[in-house]
Nucleic acid binder design. Structure first.
Lengths: 263, 263
DNA sequence: CTCGTTTCCGTAGATCGTACGGTATCCTTT
DNA sequence: AAAGGATACCGTACGATCTACGGAAACGAG
């Protein structure tokens, strides 16, 4: 797996925020820029996955020698950081409506983002690229939750929980499409090829709950419908829970204020 | 990224369920078995991540030539499938208590599982290995939720939502530990090396919600504490939401039965 | 002892990231 | 107009890595 946040911090940050010194004018003019490299890399990865995103292919897409890329980017790890942040920059956020509406909007935009860039899931962002894309996301969600009465540390936790769930669910959904596209084998075909599993190997006695759910129609939906359902249910449940937390926090604040005013 | 579910279905299923023909007795006796290969591969990946889990290293750990592995396993993709399912087989489930208690127990065991095997996150299971490990998990969660009044298709969706959230949160937590171990750079050091970001690049005016949360102590917890908090909050919220769904479903069933008995 | 069976494994080709150093093309200075 | 410095381009080569191929080795049966 690719992991972001590996290279020299100063250099990577300079690239993320496009703080390179402006060209002096002297010297051979560049055929490509940082932005065109990132765009080409994203384009390659969109089509065939991160695995297929090799420096060779990116260079070829730009009609440039492979090593030319290294004039603009320290290495592949840094390029991936830049791709991730660029992808998040394309997220369309909305300030309209309640915090719930904003978060729901965010969730659906994230779904679309992962659909556009299925490779996002493949990149661990435990040490995230500290770029505009991810900061904008964090800022937006924190701003939305500041409408609730949650104390700062709980608001941060709530944002983390939202990001974790939404990102995971969106990534899963996108992966299915990606798997079909890359392997050239639609999901239905993949399951059909494993028909023999149910016929020859699966033992209902060993997995009674699965067998019963099957018999009662628990798997009647298409796989895709089932995932959409899980996404909606999970998001709604999560926001309900945050709502409860916020109400409790508001109560406590209120009680404290009452006590103060009673003196 | 590695993606599971790629190889020949029949062969992979045979390996997952250990349905190979028993040895005839004739021929050169094997130095290694399928199980020892899987164990060695897991051991290598545990220490250094999937990237470092090369066929060379696995073979070396078994004191065997690299190509010997291919006598027992069709290729690396299939070996990864086997590793994933073996890992999930090690999950310790519990039938004790309410469905909520069971799911919470599952969540904490999953946390431990990812802590043991941080590489799990790196493997996409959109086309999962159809082995005992994953079936046992699915069966257990479905059985737990059958205690609620949820209709089958909603129970399936609820299980999916739980798996999505728990897996993502547990994986994130594990990744932090893994990142520190592999890079040899503790999380604190990583952030320290990026101190200059806050000093030279971060613009509070552009990200007011982050700046305000910072000022009000929203980031006072250590990163690790904050994640634990997000995990607990998210799980509680999710289960609350499922509880509400179940109550509504029970109501509807009850009303339907009342109508019937009124005739 | 020989033969069939099963397993072990060395070699080699293909693909990928990137270090190194040379080359090409521009502007500025003289 | 020529020289020099700056900047960008890129061909070659090396070390990993996966795995196809085919031969060698070790066993039981006859």
């Amino acid at each position: 797996m690719e992991r972001s946040g590996g290279g020299d911090p100063r250099e990577t940050l300079r690239l993320l925020w496009r703080q390179g010194k402006p060209r002096s004018g002297r010297g051979r003019p560049p055929k490509i820029t940082l932005s065109t490299i990132i765009a080409a890399a994203i384009s390659v990865a969109d089509g065939k996955g991160v695995d297929a995103m090799t420096m060779d292919k990116v260079a070829a897409a730009l009609d440039v020698g492979t090593m030319t890329l290294y004039t603009h980017v320290p290495g592949k790890a840094e390029l991936i950081d830049l791709m991730v942040d660029a992808a998040w920059q394309s997220l369309e956020l909305s300030d309209a409506g309640s915090w719930r509406a904003q978060v729901t909007h965010y969730a659906h935009q994230t779904l679309a983002l992962h659909a556009r860039h299925p490779w996002l899931r493949s990149i661990s962002t435990v040490r995230p690229p500290l770029g505009p894309g991810l900061f904008t996301r964090q800022n937006h969600l924190l701003a939305a939750l500041s409408e609730t009465a949650l104390p700062p540390s709980e608001a941060t936790a709530a944002v983390d929980a939202i990001v974790t769930f939404v990102d995971a669910a969106a990534a899963t959904e996108a992966e299915h499409a990606q798997a079909s596209a890359v392997s050239g084998e639609p999901e239905d075909d993949w399951w059909s090829a494993r028909q023999l599993f149910w016929e020859e190997i699966f033992d209902p006695a060993r997995y009674p709950a699965i067998a019963r759910s099957w018999a009662e129609g628990g798997f009647d939906r298409t796989a895709s419908e089932a995932r959409v359902n899980a996404f909606d249910i999970g998001l709604r449940a999560l926001l309900d829970g945050i709502n409860v937390m916020a109400a409790m926090a508001a109560d406590e604040t209120h009680q404290r204020e009452s006590r103060v005013s009673e003196r």
